[in-house]
Deep mutational scan, measured.
Amino acid sequence: NRRVIAMPSVRKWAREKGVDIRLVQGTGKNGRVLKEDIDAFLAG
Rank of each mutant, 00 (worst) to 15 (best):
V10K: 01
I38H: 01
R22Q: 09
L34T: 11
V10Y: 01
K29Q: 11
V4Y: 06
V19T: 03
W13D: 05
D37S: 02
K12F: 07
R11S: 04
R22Y: 11
W13C: 13
R11M: 08
A40F: 10
V19Q: 01
A6T: 05
A6S: 06
V24M: 04
A6K: 03
A40E: 10
N1S: 13
K29M: 12
A40R: 14
V24A: 03
A14T: 01
L23M: 14
D20W: 04
R15F: 12
R22H: 09
T27Q: 04
S9E: 11
D39E: 10
E36L: 11
R32Y: 06
S9P: 06
K35P: 04
T27A: 03
P8Y: 10
K35H: 09
M7F: 15
D39A: 08
G31P: 02
K35M: 11
R2S: 11
Q25S: 12
A43K: 14
R11K: 09
R2A: 09
G26S: 04
K29G: 08
S9H: 12
V33Y: 00
D37V: 02
R3H: 12
M7N: 15
G18F: 06
R11H: 09
I21W: 06
R3V: 14
V19F: 03
F41H: 08
G28D: 03
I21Y: 04
I5L: 14
A14P: 03
V24E: 00
L34W: 04
N30F: 14
Q25M: 14
K12D: 08
N1T: 15
D20H: 04
E16G: 06
E36D: 11
L23K: 13
T27R: 06
K29E: 11
K35G: 03
R22I: 06
A43N: 12
E36A: 14
E16L: 15
K12H: 07
V19W: 02
D37F: 02
I5H: 09
A6Y: 04
L42H: 07
K17D: 00
G18W: 05
D39H: 06
D37A: 00
V19K: 01
E36K: 15
G26W: 03
G26L: 01
V4G: 05
V19P: 00
G18E: 06
V24H: 00
I21G: 01
A6H: 04
V10G: 02
L23A: 10
R32M: 13
D20S: 05
R15S: 10
R15Q: 13
A14F: 03
K29C: 10
R32S: 09
L34C: 08
E36V: 13
R22A: 09
N1Y: 08
M7G: 15
A14N: 01
P8T: 08
N1F: 08
R15D: 11
L42C: 07
S9F: 10
K35L: 09
V19Y: 02
R11L: 11
G18Y: 06
G28T: 01
R2W: 07
A43Q: 13
I5N: 11
I21H: 01
K29S: 09
A43L: 14
R32Q: 12
A43M: 14
K12G: 05
A6P: 03
L23V: 10
G44P: 09
K29W: 12
L23Y: 11
E16K: 14
A43R: 14
F41N: 03
P8M: 11
I38Q: 00
P8C: 15
E16Q: 13
E16A: 14
V4Q: 06
I21Q: 00
L42Y: 07
I38S: 00
R32D: 05
K12M: 09
R15M: 12
A6W: 04
M7H: 15
K35N: 04
R2M: 10
R15E: 12
V33M: 03
